Computed example of a mutant assay.
Amino acid sequence: MLESALHVPEEEQIGNVDELDRVVDADMQVQETPAALVEHMDDSTGAHRVVSLTDLQHDMIYAGPSSYPLYEYKRTNGSGDPVAESSVDEVIGADDVAGRAATADIDAGVINPTLNLGLSEVNNDRFAVALASAYNDWLLSQLDEHSNLVGNAVVAPQHPTRAAEEIDRLADEDDIVGVQLPASGLLPPPGHRQYEPLYDAAEAHDLPIAMKSTVGNKSFGQQYWWAQSFPEDFVYQYGFVQMRNLTSLLFEGVPERYDIDFVIQGAGVGFVPFITYRLDDHYLELGYEIPALSKLPSAYLSESFYWTTQPMNQPAHGQPQFAAMVNMVGPENVLFASDLPQGVSDLPEDVLDRLSETLTAGELQKVMSENTERIYGL
């Protein structure tokens, strides 16, 4: 049996969402579509023409032959009924997200893309830049009427100089609080020197960088093509993508050179102790190959990296694996995330159910709102 590191006396526990000062979600999503984005593109460009004329827009523009439609439209509730309430071709905008957040007792949230989490795998860098800019303009138009919602601006890593220009363009927008660097399919990986203009711009504007993976793309070439079913691909993608990116960021010295907070989304916290110990161990054994660092990788992870709770990957009333992992990582580095409006989401009450016995009221408030407020300046 896995015992948690701490048991908070019952009288000191936060038992329900109403007892929290505030709930702030570090990872909510809109669902943009190519049809919505094309309205924000210059109609004289090749990108506008290609998006306008392509029927299989998700597959052909973003990832080539892949597992799209997006994964939520493949999943069922166990009885064969889809968990998604809408088609992948339907826009889910800020109005819908705000309504679902209110129903879930979420007071505020940071919005991220859905379709554009696959932006890193767009083959044409000019198209990628145009798609990023169109999404950001569309997002701003969505957020105008929602004071409790802000967003991460997506950038095209294929063209770091243009990505930096996009950050400069949007940095003064009150509704933009961070940068989304799509984690899947980053070639080269994010520690490479070619991304320096992007990091320079993020640091100059004091914007955190969020990194979220997606599924059904070609992120792991050989592994992806040999996956004979969607679940084979889905199980490992999120964690493996983030571990590859983290290793590159750390061993190439990005957090040594830049004062940037990184928010790692969508992979949960279960993999974090493993990758932390693995990074430290290999740094201690092979540090002469890693001159970019002046201290253990775990020190940088503690100072500059944050992990969202979703997915918890633990059933209710089970053993306290999730709580134990949060304690190992440190509540000061964990951010509540629901992944709303996806059909399978972790709601505030679910997170409290698994953490209330092992985290103090102050630690719970950090996880549920204060850490996200501090990182994003909310």
Rank of each mutant, 00 (worst) to 15 (best):
P82S: 12
I61Y: 12
V50H: 03
E72L: 13
P34T: 11
G80F: 05
V88L: 03
H48Q: 00
S52V: 07
A47T: 11
V24Y: 06
E12P: 00
D55V: 11
V38C: 06
A84C: 14
D27R: 14
V50K: 11
D25E: 04
G64E: 02
S67F: 03
D27G: 10
G46H: 02
D59M: 00
G64R: 04
G46M: 04
P69L: 03
I61H: 11
Y73H: 08
H48S: 07
E12L: 08
D89I: 03
V23E: 10
D89F: 08
L37S: 02
D59T: 00
I14K: 06
G64A: 02
L56H: 11
D27A: 14
V83Y: 08
S67H: 03
D89G: 11
K74L: 09
L56E: 09
E72W: 06
D59K: 03
P69R: 01
V51Q: 04
T45N: 05
S66I: 02
E72R: 09
V88A: 10
D55P: 03
S52I: 05
T76H: 13
A84T: 10
R49E: 09
D59E: 05
A36R: 12
V30Q: 02
V51S: 01
E32Y: 12
S52T: 12
V23A: 13
Y73W: 05
I61R: 11
E32L: 11
I14P: 01
D89T: 10
S52M: 07
A36H: 08
S44V: 10
R49W: 02
D59W: 05
D55F: 14
E19H: 09
S86Q: 11
R22V: 09
E32F: 11
N77F: 07
A36M: 10
S79A: 15
M28P: 02
Q13V: 02
A63S: 13
D81C: 10
L56M: 06
L70G: 05
V30W: 01
G46S: 07
H58K: 01
Q29I: 01
T54V: 14
A63F: 05
Q29R: 09
P82M: 10
E85I: 13
S79I: 08
E32G: 09
Y71R: 04
Y73G: 04
G64L: 04
K74R: 13
E85V: 15
S86E: 07
Y68V: 03
T76K: 13
L37M: 12
H40K: 09
D55I: 08
E19D: 10
A63T: 09
P69I: 00
D55H: 12
M60V: 13
Y68L: 14
E10W: 00
D21C: 07
E11H: 04
L53T: 15
V23W: 14
G64N: 04
D27P: 08
S67Y: 03
R22C: 06
I61S: 06
R22H: 13
R75W: 13
Y62A: 05
A84I: 14
Y68W: 09
Q57A: 12
Q13Y: 00
N77E: 12
E12Y: 01
Q29L: 09
Y73K: 06
H58T: 00
S44L: 08
D89S: 10
P65M: 02
P65T: 02
L56F: 08
A84S: 15
A47C: 07
A47H: 03
